[in-house]
Simulated assay, not measured.
Amino acid sequence: MAPLQDDKAAEVTEVSIPKRPISTVVFIIAMQKEASPLVEKFQLTQESNSVFPNGVPWVRYSGKYKDLNINIVCPGKDVVLGVDSVGTVSASLITYASIQALQPDLVINAGTAGGFKAKGACIGDVYLASDVAFHDRRIPIPVFDLYGVGTRQACSTPNLAKELNLKIGKLSTGDSLDMCPQDETAIVANDATVKDMEGAAIAYVADLLKTPVIFLKAVTDIVDGNKPTSEEFLENLVAVTAALDRAATQVVDYINGKNLSEL
């Protein structure tokens, strides 16, 4: 079971909030199918002169939308197997590289996720995550256990959540699509409504580099439902990605012209 956080472990590093309007936004999106509708919506172009190291498969789209410089960064295709490079390792790397190179005012991790009907989640729901944690880093040694769970808070956005009527829930992250009994126990302890394969890793890097981050997660499958997760995920991916696209566009429209404290 994920351990309870003590006061020191739960302490969130304070992020300096600039008073000027948000200027540069970086979306971290794991799958190309999740990113494509937003690339089209914001009329972004793929950058040929990469700010990233030579040889990595990472892809960056950029452009101007209203008063915002929008970047969408994807980990690209695995160079051997040709599938989307999902998971915490790729997410950590592209988040670090993107923050270093682009110096965003705000990072948005947008993507699909599994949801729990026991917590009220339904297919197509879009959640704004309040807290994120890992559920598959089991280190049963004092203090290391807290490090493994790695609970962090997302950037506080009460006005955005209220204005857009987004559901709020906790997000739990692991590197497997399925859920073994040990993961389930940890997810319950994390009080999670949705689970993904990137969020907590992105939160770790953003916290490390003192960059505000928010999480938009659209539910493709009901983890505690009757259908196999992989089957339900593929069945709903296109429709749910459209819902994610609408929510992400609304978020961008809302933050345009505002500073972080106004969110």
Rank of each mutant, 00 (worst) to 15 (best):
47 E>R: 13
47 E>G: 05
49 N>D: 13
49 N>W: 08
50 S>T: 05
51 V>T: 05
52 F>I: 00
53 P>I: 00
54 N>W: 08
54 N>R: 09
55 G>S: 04
55 G>F: 02
56 V>K: 01
56 V>D: 01
56 V>T: 07
56 V>E: 01
57 P>T: 02
57 P>W: 01
59 V>I: 14
59 V>S: 01
59 V>E: 02
60 R>K: 14
61 Y>F: 15
62 S>G: 13
62 S>E: 12
63 G>E: 13
64 K>P: 12
64 K>R: 15
65 Y>Q: 12
65 Y>C: 12
65 Y>A: 10
66 K>S: 15
67 D>P: 07
67 D>V: 11
67 D>I: 10
68 L>R: 13
68 L>F: 14
68 L>S: 12
68 L>G: 08
68 L>V: 13
68 L>H: 13
69 N>M: 14
69 N>Q: 15
70 I>R: 08
71 N>G: 07
72 I>T: 09
72 I>C: 08
73 V>M: 04
74 C>E: 04
74 C>K: 00
74 C>W: 00
74 C>A: 11
75 P>K: 03
75 P>N: 06
76 G>A: 07
77 K>I: 06
77 K>M: 11
77 K>S: 10
77 K>Q: 12
77 K>P: 04
78 D>I: 05
78 D>Q: 08
78 D>A: 07
78 D>G: 09
78 D>V: 06
78 D>P: 06
79 V>A: 10
80 V>H: 13
81 L>I: 09
82 G>A: 11
83 V>W: 09
83 V>Y: 11
83 V>P: 05
84 D>H: 07
84 D>I: 06
84 D>P: 05
85 S>P: 03
85 S>V: 03
85 S>K: 06
85 S>Y: 02
86 V>W: 11
86 V>L: 15
87 G>L: 07
87 G>Q: 06
87 G>M: 06
87 G>A: 08
88 T>I: 14
88 T>S: 14
89 V>I: 15
90 S>H: 08
92 S>P: 02
92 S>G: 09
93 L>V: 09
93 L>I: 12
93 L>C: 06
94 I>F: 01
94 I>A: 00
94 I>S: 00
94 I>Y: 01
95 T>Y: 03
95 T>R: 02
95 T>H: 04
96 Y>W: 11
96 Y>F: 11
96 Y>P: 01
96 Y>G: 07
97 A>Q: 09
97 A>K: 04
98 S>T: 02
98 S>A: 09
98 S>Q: 02
99 I>H: 03
99 I>Q: 03
101 A>M: 05
